[in-house]
């Protein structure tokens, strides 16, 4: 189901069945869930009966069925929400149970079910190229993938907010805002509030590029390789900080482990080439590597002996094996950073 189809349903007040909200843009999930709540939950006094909210990685299908079959209290409809479920590893039995939920809702049309899933719960892919699990789920429920919006859409959305507040924006100002603040709609919404307050306080009617630069905070987006950069630079405190950022952003620790292993593996190759007498300028060509990347590797490789890199690579291999045997990969990475730091010089 496309976001536009959900919008049409809401406009026509024809919400019904089972929905799955997934994808990267949490702001839109919250927005559309709010719209559905406004439509169905008309009296907060009866929320205890008409608005059961569940949270958990494993869906309790029996509890869900109970909530669906209980009729609404003093209202035409009830809304059942489940957040935090992990859909990625669903088995055939879970898909069958989900199909049963859809049938139960069909028999109890006053009940509407909405599953809200974060990126840790499933990889939805993109609207153009949905993931396998999304495709399978979309065959059972009304699944909407809320992708990160494009620059065009974000600019139009920001403009609508600015106009709604009685202001306008000069050409390029809203694009500059996206460039500066990033693509998160949550961040952009709060930055827009700041701009509106500033403009009103100063009697301005037009948001300019200068206003954006003065008022909006710059946001570094998704520093996916900050940890490997810090390891390469021998910046251990920085590496721990970047690891914390990755954990906070719920990046899969195995992905982090893969990045670190790749870095060390590249450094072993560069270090060996340098030891064999390859000139620094010849490393990029010898490894078929980007010139800038090779330069950084050459700088870093000069700080350790090849056997030290080999020892670190052996530790990466051990970390990989231990993680696959069930050890916590995060602890493995923390230990690795400590070792790499202790082993930092000739």
């Amino acid at each position: 189901m496309l976001q536009s189809e959900l919008k049409t349903q809401l406009k026509a007040k024809k919400i019904g069945g089972v929905y799955l909200f997934c994808g990267e843009e949490d702001y839109l999930k919250r927005y559309y869930l709010g719209q559905i709540r406004n439509l169905i939950l008309t009296d907060p006094v009866f929320d205890a009966f008409n608005h059961p909210v569940f949270h958990g990685e494993q869906i309790d299908f029996a509890a869900l069925a109970d909530a669906i079959t209980a009729p609404p209290m003093m209202a035409d409809g009830k809304l059942i929400e489940w957040s935090g479920a992990i859909f990625e590893d669903m088995k055939d039995a879970d898909f069958a149970a989900l199909e049963a939920v859809v049938r139960t809702v069909g028999e109890n049309p006053a009940s509407v079910v909405v599953f809200v899933v974060g990126t840790e719960g499933m990889d939805a892919g993109s609207v153009k190229r949905p993931s396998t699990v999304f495709k399978r789920l979309a065959g059972i429920v009304q699944a909407v993938n809320f992708e990160t919006s494009t620059d065009d859409r974000l600019a139009a959305w920001l403009n609508a907010h600015i106009v709604h507040e009685g202001l306008d924006a000069e050409a390029g100002a809203l694009r500059a805002m996206i460039d500066r603040c990033g693509h998160s709609m949550d961040v952009l919404a709060s930055e827009t509030e700041k701009i509106v307050c500033y403009a009103r306080a100063h009697g301005m009617r037009t948001v300019t590029r200068e206003t954006v630069e003065l008022v909006c905070s710059p946001t570094a987006e998704d520093d996916a390789f900050g940890l490997t950069n810090a390891v390469l630079a021998g910046d251990t405190p920085g590496a721990y900080r970047k690891l914390s950022d990755l954990v906070r952003r719920r990046v899969d620790p195995m992905v982090v482990l893969g990045q670190v292993s790749r870095l060390i593996s590249d450094l072993v190759s560069v270090s060996c080439l340098l030891e064999e007498g390859t000139p620094p300028t010849g490393v990029a060509a010898a490894l078929g590597m980007n010139e800038y990347k090779a330069k950084l590797y050459v700088q870093s490789a000069g700080k350790r002996r090849p056997e030290q890199f080999r020892a670190l690579l052996a530790q990466c291999r051990e970390m990989d094996l231990a993680s696959k045997r069930g050890a916590d990969p995060l602890i493995q990475i923390e230990r690795f950073l400590a070792t790499a730091s202790a082993d930092g010089g000739r």
Binding site: D179, D223, A224, F225, G226, T228, N229, L232, Q259, V260, R262, L263, D266, N290, Y292, K293, L296
Partner: peptide
């Protein structure tokens, strides 16, 4: 003048 993150996995420059 703009700042740019040049990403060449596993590094960003």
């Amino acid at each position: 003048t703009v700042g740019v993150d040049l990403t060449i996995p596993p590094l960003s420059i």
